[in-house]
Nucleic acid binder design. Structure first.
Length: 561
RNA sequence: CGGGGCGUAGCGCAGCCUGGCAGCGCGCUUGCUUUGGGAGCAAGAAGUCGGCGGUUCAAAUCCGCCCGCCCCGACCA
């Protein structure tokens, strides 16, 4: 491709609306343009990157025997009603009516449709297993699109679905996807973790997420560098440290206008870890007192697993159920359901007295109050791994892929069954597996970029070689550059020839902004000494190759990257 | 949905408080020069100041309503 003909509007300045590095750079490098909130146009360079990612995905999916197909984005609402998700999902799903007033939806995922297909076509255990996938547009009316390509309302997803006879066979399909996914993310050149994740509303027992570390991410994971334990913070476990507890002598202490953990701990001059943080939540109509150590935070997803849907109690509700205001509530003499974090099982704490202006010291769990104990706290960096007792680290990550064991959550309501060897009808056991190609690209930018621009992993760069022709008006330089351009392409290397009639500084700056792995420069020095200058975008390493051998040399450089 | 910020030329922004000619930088067009790190000089084109309504002799500027975009939170198969 010639830069003089390529549509890649680069910008010197960061776009005003961008915050994330990947967002700024993908706009500046002319990869994308924003149409509206959460809606992006992929320009030629951006599309090339996505195509490269998709091509890697296809190769690895095909390698595990998955078969590509393509399903409609526009779908009848009826199928979603059958699985109950039409009501469950709410405002995030785009809904519309066709001219015949039939209710339709725009697909935010395709479990329903693929299961409908399977229900009609898969009949016998002989037909199984199957793995079907597509790379298809999804639409979600996101509450808050953000961070450029990281959370959009319309986006491409590779989604695959496995169909098996039983749980054991599903485990094999699941493992095959782990293999494929590991290879996909490795080949795309991004750093990633495979972490345990919350199966959530997808149902099913097991789920993992593929997470690319980046400060632009929306999730956090706990990682043990020693034993490899890795889990989304929504469900990560840890062993908390043990503070030194005082003598269990119970007495009430006046704490006027001292409400927050910080205020109470400094007023009493004790560590926050010696306080119990009491929160009143409403699970439907039922008030529940939730207790954590003062230095810990509630992990709401964990609590939701125990309580179902819940919300924070309003001030009037707190007053009504405890007799005190927020800041002074606690478990003593309180006849409502109580859930405490496991770290409160032992120890002696200060709690709110359920009387404004007072706290109680020397309170022992199990002695002075009873509660259900569950792990409901958020893991903090520095807490110990539950498996090997080494310090955990907590990192912010971008979710680039996920894999779920669905079981029969969709096959049962949609009647996707098969006849087993004994002629007995059984539901197909399913798995669901997603990858966001644009998030891979964004993660690659986030992880690789430097102050000059993007640094692409070679496998997904829009071009392998950015060939800078310094002076296109010089026939000597042009002849050499054209020859190299043509030789490189003959060698199967994708090359962008910058033949634009602009200053050399602008060309170099654009080359750095675009971030192709190899830059080759042909200028007056090349005419003089017959050597092409090669610079690697990553690390900036420079080489000079005699022009006759340049193609072979660049080829071997690219293989090493 | 709650909180905050922003909306002025293609892009980045000033002007608004204190009403009175719509500006700056980059980009764009033309010409000449220049050509290994975002070139110089000269001449130009380009704006319903987000929209609607109000106040006023006069509104980018003050007031009201609406729309859009970004950030924090809630939410996130």
């Amino acid at each position: 491709m010639r830069a003089s003909r390529l549509f890649f509007p680069t910008l010197k300045e960061d776009p005003a609306e961008a915050e994330a590095i990947s967002h700024k750079l993908s706009v500046r490098a002319g990869l994308v343009r924003q149409l509206a909130a959460g809606l992006y146009i992929y320009l030629p360079l951006g599309l090339r990157v996505i195509d490269k990612v998709n091509s890697i995905i296809r190769q690895e999916m095909n390698a595990i025997g998955a078969q590509e197909l393509s399903m409609p984005v526009l779908q009848p609402a009826e199928i979603w009603k059958q699985t109950g998700r039409y009501e469950e999902i709410g405002a995030e799903m785009f809904r519309l009516r066709d001219r015949g007033e039939r209710e339709m939806v725009l697909g935010m995922t395709h479990e329903e449709i693929i299961t409908w297909l399977a229900a009609g076509e898969l009949r016998s255990y002989r037909d199984l297993p199957q793995v079907w996938y597509q790379i298809q547009t999804k639409l979600r009316d996101e509450a808050r699109p953000k961070s450029g390509m990281l959370r959009t309302r319309e986006f491409l997803m590779k989604d695959s679905y496995s169909f098996d006879v039983d749980e054991e066979a599903l485990e094999q399909s699941y493992q095959l996807h782990i293999q494929a996914y590991d290879r996909i993310f490795e080949r795309c050149g991004i750093e990633f973790y495979r972490v345990e994740s919350d199966p959530g509303m997808m149902g099913g027992a097991m789920a993992h997420e593929y997470m690319a570390p980046s400060p632009a991410g929306e999730d956090e994971v706990a990682i043990c560098t020693a034993c490899g334990y890795a889990a989304n913070l929504e469900l990560a476990h840890s062993v908390p440290d043990h503070p030194e507890y005082p003598e269990p002598v119970m007495n009430e202490v006046a704490t006027p206008e001292v409400r927050t953990i910080d205020e109470v701990s400094s007023f009493l001059d004790i560590s926050p870890a010696l306080l119990i943080k009491s929160l009143l939540v409403m699970a439907g109509e039922e008030p529940v007192l939730v207790m954590l150590r003062g230095d810990q935070e509630l992990q709401e997803t964990k609590l939701a697993h125990k309580l179902g849907e819940f919300r924070q109690a309003h001030p009037e509700e707190i007053q009504k159920h405890t007799g005190a205001n927020a800041g002074f509530i606690g478990p003593l003499e309180l006849d409502i359901r109580k859930i405490a974090d496991q770290s409160l099982r032992e120890g002696v704490f200060v709690v709110g007295a359920n009387r404004d202006g007072y706290h109680v010291r020397g309170v022992k769990a199990g002695v002075d109050f009873q509660a259900e104990y569950h792990d409901i706290r958020r893991v903090k960096a520095g807490e110990k791994c539950a498996h090997c007792n080494v310090d955990l680290k907590v990192e912010r990550v971008i979710e680039v892929g996920n894999i779920f064991k669905l079981g029969t959550k969709y096959s049962e309501p949609l009647g996707a069954t098969y006849l087993d060897v004994n002629g007995k009808e059984r539901p197909i056991v399913m798995g669901s597996y997603g990858i966001g190609p644009a998030r891979i690209a964004a993660a690659a930018i986030e992880q690789g970029a430097d102050d000059k621009g993007i640094v692409w992993p070679a496998s997904i760069a829009p071009f392998s070689v950015h060939l800078v022709l310094v002076q296109p008006k010089d026939s000597g330089q042009t002849a050499i550059a054209e020859k190299l351009f043509s030789d490189l392409r003959s060698a199967g290397i994708e090359v962008l020839l910058d033949d634009r009639d602009i200053g050399p500084g602008a060309k170099f700056a654009d080359a750095e902004l675009l971030g192709c792995p190899v830059r080759a420069t042909v200028g007056k020095r090349t005419v003089a000494d017959g050597e092409a200058e090669i610079q690697l975008r990553k690390g900036g390493e420079e080489h000079k190759f005699e022009i006759g051998t340049a193609t072979a040399q660049i080829s071997s450089l690219l293989e090493q990257i």
